[in-house]
């Protein structure tokens, strides 16, 4: 029983981590809390849904959702954030601007779906269950866990082993100095926002599949959980996001199972509140990480 609970926790934790990866990438590199990430995530789910309904195979739907939401994310950067970089108080301004962008995306999705909860047609992903040692897990759940591991690895490889990643980290450290050394910040912004959006897109499709629901407000609970993860893991720390995501999933499942019903949310946000007070830099936030948080 407890093993099953832990496993469920790890699976929902992977889902949270999947959402938080792109969110933390932007907050680490550009010191922006991009609340529109929730809207991009939701858009990814919608693109995936409509592709599947039109009869495209699932893998193609996922790829199109990633490309679509990646481009959308970059578009949001151009529209919402580019103008603000000249201003001094980018933190506040970017937060407001991304809330605005998020509202626009939610409004469009609401009109498009007529405020309905859409769900993927039955059998979009084969419903196979595996049983071993008394534990039950579906193929989709296994795929999500595996995917988080792969994407996490790829993201780390990209950031720390490639020339692009070095450029991203250079801009994160000091944009002006990076520019003087011949890094084109525009291409860095394109890369980070595209990758962040693509991650949000695949997260949207998979979460839409997992819970069999795609609707215009689906981003909000993940955004709120995303804040918890990003703060607990350290603002901008990618390993932190994965660890904090898994931790959050396990704690949430255990709390739902063993605490009085309804107290889970109160517990999670109290954890966030206390975490902020005791250790605002989070579990992994420190000088050692190149893609670190912008704190003064």
């Amino acid at each position: 029983m407890i093993v099953q609970q832990l496993l469920n926790g790890l699976i929902s934790g992977s889902v949270y981590a999947l959402f938080a990866l792109g969110f933390t990438l932007i907050s680490g590199t550009h010191r922006i809390l991009n609340l529109a990430h929730a809207g991009v995530f939701m858009t990814g789910a919608f693109i995936g849904y409509y592709c599947v309904v039109l009869g495209l195979p699932l893998w193609l739907a996922i790829v199109l959702a990633m490309i679509g939401s990646g481009l959308l994310s970059y578009f949001i950067d151009i529209v919402a954030f580019q103008q603000l970089r000249a201003q001094k108080q980018i933190e506040f301004a970017a937060l407001i601007s991304s809330i605005g962008a998020n509202l626009i995306l939610i409004n469009i999705a609401q009109r498009l779906s007529d405020t309905q909860v859409l769900s993927f047609p039955f059998g979009t992903f084969p419903t196979i269950f595996f049983h071993f040692a008394g534990v039950r897990v579906s193929a989709l759940q296994l795929m999500i866990v595996a995917l988080v591991a792969v994407l996490f690895g790829l993201l780390l490889f990209y950031l720390y082993k490639t020339s692009f990643g070095r450029q991203v980290r250079a801009v994160a450290g000091n944009e002006r100095a990076a520019m003087l050394l011949g890094v084109n910040p525009k291409s860095v912004y394109f890369q980070t926002f595209f990758i962040s959006g693509a991650l949000a897109g695949i997260a949207g499709v998979l979460i839409g599949l997992l819970f069999s629901s795609v609707y215009f407000l689906m981003g909000e609970p993940y955004l709120l959980r995303g804040f918890v993860i990003v703060i607990l893991g350290g603002l901008g720390s990618i390993p932190g996001a994965v660890v904090a995501g898994l931790l959050l999933g396990v704690m949430q499942t255990l709390a739902t199972a063993y605490l009085p019903p309804g107290l889970t949310d109160a517990m999670i946000y109290s954890l966030l509140f206390v975490g902020l007070l005791i250790r605002p830099s989070g579990l992994f936030g420190g000088q050692a990480i190149a893609v670190a948080a912008g704190r003064r």
Partner: peptide, 28 residues
Amino acid sequence: WPLARLRGVYQAIATLAFVQIVTALLLY
């Protein structure tokens, strides 16, 4: 009392957490 220590985005997230705690307790 605790929040005067935080700044900027951290303050925003902490107050957001406060709103969520209030909402969760009202639901509970």
